[in-house]
Amino acid sequence: MPGLIRGVARTAVVAGTATAVSNRVSRRQAGRWAQQDDAQQQQYAQQQPAAPPPAPAPAAPAAPSMDSKIDQLKELAGLKEQGVLTEAEFEAQKARILAS
């Protein structure tokens, strides 16, 4: 009986040691793979071209000349006299034209 217990105990020690070593190797490999993945991701990020610069804003349209403003105001007055525009619409469009 003592020989049987000794054999079982030896088997348990060997199995426990094998499990501990196996776990340690697995953790070490996982750490190495993680480092390699990080290094590859950094290299990939460095190789990617930078985003293109944003397109320049479109140029603002040239301010209408005073003559064109006067012409537009005359058109508005004509539309108002014909009854196409209400007084409020006329005033709103006139303010828009004069503000430009």
Rank of each mutant, 00 (worst) to 15 (best):
E89S: 04
A34Y: 01
P61K: 04
I97G: 03
R10E: 11
R27I: 10
Q42K: 10
E81G: 10
Q29V: 13
S68R: 11
G7W: 12
E81V: 06
R6S: 15
M66Q: 14
I97T: 05
A30N: 13
P61C: 02
L4E: 13
A59R: 01
Q82A: 14
S68K: 13
A51L: 09
R28G: 06
A18P: 00
D71Y: 15
Q43I: 00
W33P: 00
S65Q: 08
Q36T: 09
N23C: 11
A30H: 10
G83F: 03
N23H: 09
Q82C: 00
A60T: 02
V13G: 06
G16P: 02
Q42P: 01
Q93K: 14
Q29L: 10
I70R: 15
Q43S: 08
T19C: 10
L76I: 15
A63T: 15
Q29Y: 04
Q43V: 07
L4W: 13
A34C: 00
A55D: 08
Q43W: 09
Q48P: 03
L85N: 00
M1H: 10
A77K: 13
E81M: 11
A12K: 01
P58C: 01
S100L: 13
V13A: 13
Q43A: 13
Q40I: 11
Q93A: 14
A9H: 09
G78E: 14
K80R: 15
D67K: 04
Q48S: 07
S65K: 07
V25C: 08
S26D: 07
T17E: 05
D38V: 11
G16D: 05
A95H: 01
P2D: 12
L79Y: 11
D37P: 00
E91K: 11
P58W: 02
R10C: 03
S68A: 10
N23Q: 10
Q93L: 13
L76K: 02
S65W: 02
R96D: 10
T19F: 04
P2E: 15
Q35R: 07
P53I: 01
I70M: 06
D67E: 14
P52T: 04
Q72G: 13
Q29E: 15
E75A: 14
T86N: 02
